[in-house]
Amino acid sequence: MVATAAENGLAQVPASPLRPAALASWLFGVAILILLIVAVGGITRLTESGLSITEWKPVTGAIPPIGEAQWQAEFAAYQATPEYRFEAGPAGMTLSDFKFIFFWEWFHRLIGRVIGMAFALPLAWFWIRGAIPAGYKPRLVALLALGGLQGAFGWFMVRSGLSGEMTDVSHFWLSIHLLTALFTLGGLIWTARDLLVLAGNPQARPARLTALGTATLAILFIQLLFGAWVAGLNAGLASDSWPLMQGRLFPEIGWTRGALWTLTHDPFLIHWIHRWWAWVAVAALIVMARALKKAGDRRASVYIHIAFGTQIILGIATVMTGVALWLAVAHQVVGAALVAATAWGAHRLGQGAR
């Protein structure tokens, strides 16, 4: 007879319910969805679609208008907005035109709902199964809360363009909305990388931010902030030439309303800062990439180089084509991919430091 493990004095070890690798795959999947919503958000902005839906209905808003009466009601609500009265209406917008911009805003919000479910439902399942390693529940709940804030910030952004005489949303709210999405993306990548390391070594501890990682992310944050303001103020149209603007290295700027207002509102200055701070960001990313290569992670170094190289080319092309739609959208999406690559690189450096 074959002796059992118990008869041989061998204790049977129960299988662990923890699934760090599965959790990492799930988080990477959510990160891909965020890249998708960044792309659709860019299309929504560039097609002036963001104010086409004038109400925030988290549940019932998932269903688009059905029938002529509902479409006319939505169109009438849009016709009451400053954007329609001062821009879209005088241009001669038809119901068919309205349906086009309505689709992009509705699709943008729909993807937001899908992301919420794609995060909340698996999180609940992993939680109930006891598959979440110790110390990760608060971080995952925080990421879920960021997703909820993202939806709320999106509505505050839309609401900012529905009152007064504004024909566009506030570029401040637009930057908060976009940067929250990118911060969430970075958090997903960082947490997924921690979980992958934990899957290979159950004794591993989470990575921590190094001085180089912090500095690089801070420099990139400034670039992304001015990029969001460029989008919100249509400042990409301030110049269609590169490297000069208006035939000059530094464009004419009006400072009569004060330095702070000019720095945060003047489209020419904001455009100029965005195009030249990019090279500060490139320098920081090169330093990070070299540090990663020295640490033995050549793949992360290569991805960072590809991301910022592509981003620079797309940025110049976007300017020189007068903000062509698909180039501008690609510029925004690659910017999000650059955030993901930088978060990966900062995590790798932090993992080595740990």
Rank of each mutant, 00 (worst) to 15 (best):
A3L: 15
E7D: 10
E7M: 10
A15I: 11
A21H: 12
L23W: 01
A24D: 01
S25P: 03
F28W: 15
A31Y: 01
L33F: 13
I34H: 06
L36R: 06
A39S: 09
W56S: 10
G67V: 13
G67W: 02
Q70H: 08
E83L: 10
F86Q: 14
E87L: 14
S96F: 10
D97H: 09
F102R: 06
H108D: 05
R109P: 00
L110F: 04
V114M: 07
I128K: 14
A131R: 02
G148H: 01
A152K: 03
M157R: 04
G164D: 01
T167P: 11
F172I: 13
F172M: 10
L179F: 00
G186N: 05
G200V: 11
A204W: 00
T210I: 00
T216L: 04
I219W: 00
F226R: 04
G227A: 03
A228L: 01
V230D: 02
A235M: 03
G236W: 02
M245N: 09
P251Y: 02
T256K: 14
L263G: 10
T264G: 09
P267A: 04
W279L: 14
L285F: 03
A300C: 02
S301Q: 07
V302L: 14
L327Q: 05
Q332M: 11
V333L: 11
T342A: 12
G350F: 00
G350V: 02
Q351V: 04
R354N: 11
